[in-house]
Nucleic acid binder design. Structure first.
Lengths: 138, 138
DNA sequence: GTAGCGATGCAACGGAAGTGCATTTATTGT
DNA sequence: ACAATAAATGCACTTCCGTTGCATCGCTAC
C-alpha cells in the first residue's frame, strides 16, 4: 500500500484514498480497464472522479490509454520502463472476441512501417483480435 | 452512374437512389467517411437510412469498416480485390492528427506477428497516426 | 391491382465522454 | 492553530454517436 503511495508521488500525483484504490484495482486486474469497470467495482464511486483520476494518471504517465477497437477508452498501468508518452513503447494489444478483455503484450513491439512520401508517423496502434489464452484453453 | 448500379447489383444490393448517391459520395472522397460526414453532405438524408445503408454495404462487402482510433466508425469502399471479410486484406490505415482524415494504405499490409502461446489471432488492426501528405506539404 | 417485402423516415433510447459549478478536503504561509 | 489558497470530489447536465421499434412508402412479383 505504501508502495502505491510512493509510486504515485514519484509521478507527481497526490496519493488520495480514491487514487490508491484505483491504482490497486488496476494493478490486480492484469487487463486494460474501462471507466465503467472501475465504476462497477466501487459502488461508492462517482464517474466524474474516476474520469478525472484516469485523466490525471494518463497525463502524469501512471497509465496509458488503450484503443482496442471497441470504441471504449481503456487504461492499463505503465510498466516500470514504459515510455508511452514518448512514443517509444509501441507495444501491441490483444483484444479477445470472446471475453472482451484486452491485454498489453508489452514484449511485442510494433514493427516499423515505411510510409508513402509525405506521410509523417507520430504514433501507431496495433490491435490483434482473436481468442486469448484463457478462452482458448477452455 | 450505371457503373455504380452494376456494382451494387453484383453484390446483391438493390441500387436505390439513396444508395447510389452514398456510393458516389464515398467514391469521390478518397478517405474514410463517417456516418456524420454523409449526413452533412446530404441535407435531406436521414441518419437511420444512412446507418442501415452502411450496414448493408458492409454486410454485402461493398465497404469495410475502419477503426481509426477516434472511436467513430468510418467506412471506405472495398477495392476490386478487397477480401476484407476474409481477413485477408489486412491493410493499414493512416489517421492524420491535423485534418482528422483517415486514408487506407492498401498497398501496405500488416506484418505477421508471433503471439504468445494460447493466443489465436483472427483479425488485426494497425493505425498509424501522424501528419498526412496533404497537411505536411503545407 | 393487390399482396408482400424491402427501403425509408420519425422518434426515442442508451452508453460513454466530457463540462460547469458547488462543495469538501488537503496544503501552505503566517 | 488559523486563515487563505489550491486541489480533489461529487452532482447535474450536455453532447455525440450508435442503435432500435414502429409506421409508412414504394417497388416487385404474382
Amino acid at each position: 500500500m505504501k508502495e502505491i503511495e510512493k509510486t504515485l508521488e514519484s509521478k507527481s500525483v497526490r496519493p488520495t484514498a480514491m487514487r490508491i484504490l484505483i491504482y490497486k484495482y488496476m494493478a490486480e486486474k492484469e487487463i486494460a480497464v474501462a471507466l465503467t469497470d472501475i465504476e462497477n467495482a466501487f459502488a461508492k464511486s462517482d464517474r466524474t472522479t474516476l474520469y478525472r483520476t484516469l485523466k490525471t494518471f494518463e497525463e502524469k504517465g501512471v497509465v496509458h490509454q488503450i484503443d482496442d477497437g471497441t470504441g471504449i477508452h481503456k487504461y492499463a498501468l505503465c510498466e516500470p520502463g514504459c515510455n508511452c508518452e514518448l512514443d517509444q513503447d509501441l507495444h501491441l494489444h490483444f483484444h479477445c472476441a470472446n471475453c472482451d478483455e484486452t491485454v498489453c503484450l508489452t514484449e511485442h513491439k510494433i514493427p516499423h512501417i515505411n510510409l508513402p512520401e509525405g506521410f509523417i508517423a507520430e504514433d501507431a496502434n496495433l490491435v490483434i483480435k482473436g481468442i486469448c489464452e484463457k478462452c482458448s484453453g477452455q
